[in-house]
Computed example of a mutant assay.
Amino acid sequence: MRAEVTFIGNATTLLRLGDFTLLTDPAFGPAGSRVSLGYGMWSKRLRDPVLDPLADAGPDAIVLSHLHGDHFDRAARQRLDPRLPILTTPQAERRLRRRFTAVRGLPTWESHEWTRGNQRLRVTAVPGRHGPGAVDLLLPDVMGSVIELAVDGRTRLTLYVTGDTLCRPGLAEIPRRLGEIDVMLIHLGGTRILGLLVTMDDRQGAELTRLIRPGRTIPIHFDDYRVMKSPLDDYLRHNLPGVRPVSRGETFELPVRVDEEPK
């Protein structure tokens, strides 16, 4: 059974999980393009995404962590079919539903699932917090996602996509509620806006990795835009077990469980 991730760039990945294909946080603009961060602020893209793997992908749905320009840019909005299902925050749903007719906002801990034959794919919204303290109220709501692939009622893969969250002790609730995390796609970069940290830097990323204890950790969202100040190498120097960087355009096979009991 196929289970793999292709890194497109920034927070954009293509997930092929059994008979399902998901696209995360689509941003297709080239290097040099600018994206809005809200309140009149902009950031310039520094690196091109690798779009070739998307040519024949035919995703079943988009999982959108939040509505910021570096996660859902103008190029993606123009390219994507407005009938394509989008799972995102309720806040983002309200802004997208005029153009995208199948968008659904998931409150925290709510799930949506698809079934094909003997396979089930479930996406559960989990907590995320974009900014420190009261600053978070000025930023878009963020949704982490736990994606579970089951075959014949048995869980084969549990994947956690962090979204643009800062590390908080409450995130330990994720494996407590949803079980062992096989793979974590962690959003890093140490993004700073007006001097304030709004995505995890290397130290927060290391803290979350120890908190979640995934079998495999794949860092993404770390060097595409000028506002990102924490290089990937800083995170890698923590020498955490199971960390596997993936290059742009690279496809990495994900571990699939073989003897999980029915859930």
Results as ranks from 00 to 15, higher is better:
T162I: 01
D81N: 15
L46R: 15
R210G: 02
L121W: 07
V5H: 02
G38Q: 03
T115I: 14
R94T: 15
V256R: 14
G58F: 07
L54Q: 04
R168Y: 11
T21V: 14
T165F: 00
I86K: 08
P245K: 04
M41K: 10
T165Q: 01
D52P: 04
P169R: 05
A57H: 04
R83N: 14
V198Q: 06
L194C: 02
G195A: 04
L37H: 00
H66T: 12
M41H: 12
R129T: 12
D25P: 13
A125T: 05
L67I: 14
H238T: 10
H112T: 12
W42L: 01
G249W: 01
R129Y: 10
P214G: 03
G144E: 10
A150D: 11
T12N: 11
P30R: 05
L37P: 00
T108I: 08
D182Q: 02
G9S: 06
E207D: 04
L87N: 04
D136S: 14
N239P: 07
L211N: 02
R16Q: 09
D19M: 06
T24S: 11
G58E: 15
A55Q: 13
G105L: 04
I174E: 00
R94H: 15
L121R: 06
H68N: 13
R129K: 15
P26K: 07
L194T: 01
Y39W: 13
W42R: 09
V161E: 07
T21W: 05
I86D: 12
G153E: 08
L232K: 06
D70T: 01
S43V: 03
E253M: 09
V142S: 00
E180R: 15
G144W: 08
R16V: 04
L188P: 02
S145Q: 13
T155V: 14
T6M: 00
G205Q: 07
V5M: 11
M1W: 11
T209E: 09
E260P: 08
L149H: 00
L139N: 12
R99H: 15
R34N: 13
L138A: 15
F100I: 05
N10R: 06
L236F: 03
L236P: 02
G117T: 07
R2F: 07
L84T: 14
K44S: 11
P245V: 01
D60Y: 03
P59W: 05
I212N: 01
D233R: 14
A134K: 15
H71G: 15
D73G: 05
F100W: 13
S33G: 00
E173A: 11
G32I: 03
T101F: 10
P175L: 13
P169Y: 09
L138T: 14
P214V: 06
I174W: 00
I8R: 09
L240I: 10
V146G: 00
V258C: 11
G242R: 09
V258L: 14
P255E: 09
L196S: 12
T209M: 05
G144P: 08
G170K: 14
R244G: 09
T124G: 02
L240W: 10
T199H: 13
A125V: 03
R213M: 10
L96I: 06
D141S: 11
R154H: 15
G163K: 02
D81P: 08
V246S: 02
Q78F: 10
V256T: 13
H112G: 11
